[in-house]
């Protein structure tokens, strides 16, 4: 019991519930069926992304190009949907695009020995730039009903996309904890050199991590397109990279093979709750970023303190 309580995931979950309770008390609009539904929907897209980015962070990497990958994949998949390509194939195309861009990131980082933070800052600009050039900066919108209705639909009262995020969470958590590949991800994340010396191809695992990340973002991109009805080639996902990273870190995922995707998911919920709650409380837009930042900082401090204590009494 004590062990569970000490876990970062539990700590952030309690913290999130606390924040949730505060908003429920402070705002009449927060704890309502409509808003809770909205909250789960707002969570959903980022919630899929955080799974991919979480894996990358466990591997010791970072992906700041997530937003641009989302925009490119979504723009491409969305265009295909509009052209009448079957939804499932369009989504597949979007996922493959994300995987390809992840492959590009992973390859640059491992083969050219560029630190992930620098490589993905650069590719973030490059991907976005290419997209704007190709599309001329126009939005991709006016998707057919058949597509949007699938995405905006609900199951048990909650957004379909939320359930999809949960399915991905379950699958990837299983992969991470109960398969060879998952063990190798944690091994490479903690010490690539040791992993190499027992026959694990660290570069390949690292690149695969980025590819999975790209796949998640590519899938999320189509969900975004369906939910919001448009991909702005220049604007969509502009802050995604940092938001998702903050969620992963707040949820206890760390750059050295520590943390779980469940933690990252809870971290993402926390950030969504904060954003939604502040808006419901009609906090001035000027304040929203500052308050969000402060709460994330608090979560990170909790994380750091907890890690320190855990290190001490073992």
């Amino acid at each position: 019991m004590n062990k569970i309580l000490k876990r970062q995931e539990t700590l952030i979950a309690i913290f999130s519930l606390l924040v949730f309770a505060v908003f429920s008390v402070c705002s009449d609009n927060f704890f309502t069926a409509t808003n809770i539904r909205l909250l789960f929907q707002q969570y959903a897209v980022n919630g899929i992304c955080v799974l991919g980015v979480g894996i990358v962070v466990i591997l010791g990497g970072i992906d700041l190009s997530a937003g641009s990958i989302l925009a490119i994949s979504g723009a491409l998949g969305g265009t295909l949907v509009k052209m009448g390509v079957p939804t499932i194939l369009s989504i597949l195309a979007s996922v493959l695009t994300g995987m390809f861009l992840g492959l590009v990131n992973g390859t640059i980082i491992t083969k050219l020995h560029v630190p992930a933070i620098i490589a993905t800052i650069a590719t973030n600009y490059v991907f976005r730039g290419i997209l704007v050039i190709i599309t001329g900066g126009f939005w991709v919108n006016n998707f057919p009903k058949s597509f949007t209705s699938m995405v905006t639909g609900r199951f048990l009262g909650l957004s379909n996309v939320f359930w999809m995020a949960m399915v991905f969470l379950a699958v990837l958590t299983f992969v991470l904890h109960y398969t060879n590949f998952g063990r190798k991800i944690y091994a490479v994340g903690t010490s690539a050199e040791t992993a190499e010396k027992c026959g694990i191809n660290a570069d390949r695992i690292y690149i695969l991590g980025f590819v999975i990340c790209g796949a998640m973002i590519g899938y999320a991109a189509m969900m975004y397109a369906g939910l919001y009805g448009a991909i702005s080639t220049s604007g969509t996902g502009a802050s995604l990279g940092t938001t998702v990273l903050a969620a992963a870190l707040a949820g206890g995922i760390n750059f050295n093979g520590r943390g779980t995707l469940i933690g990252g998911t809870i971290g993402m919920f926390l950030i969504t709750i904060i954003n939604n709650g502040l808006i419901q409380m009609r906090v001035s837009e000027y304040w929203i970023n500052a308050v969000t930042g402060a709460i994330i900082l608090l979560a990170l401090i909790l994380n750091a303190m907890n890690a320190k204590n855990a290190g001490r009494d073992m």
Binding site: E193, N256, G257
Partner: peptide, 9 residues
């Protein structure tokens, strides 16, 4: 430490 074990595991 560098090549043999993964200390965090």
């Amino acid at each position: 430490r560098k090549e043999g074990i993964i200390v965090m595991m």
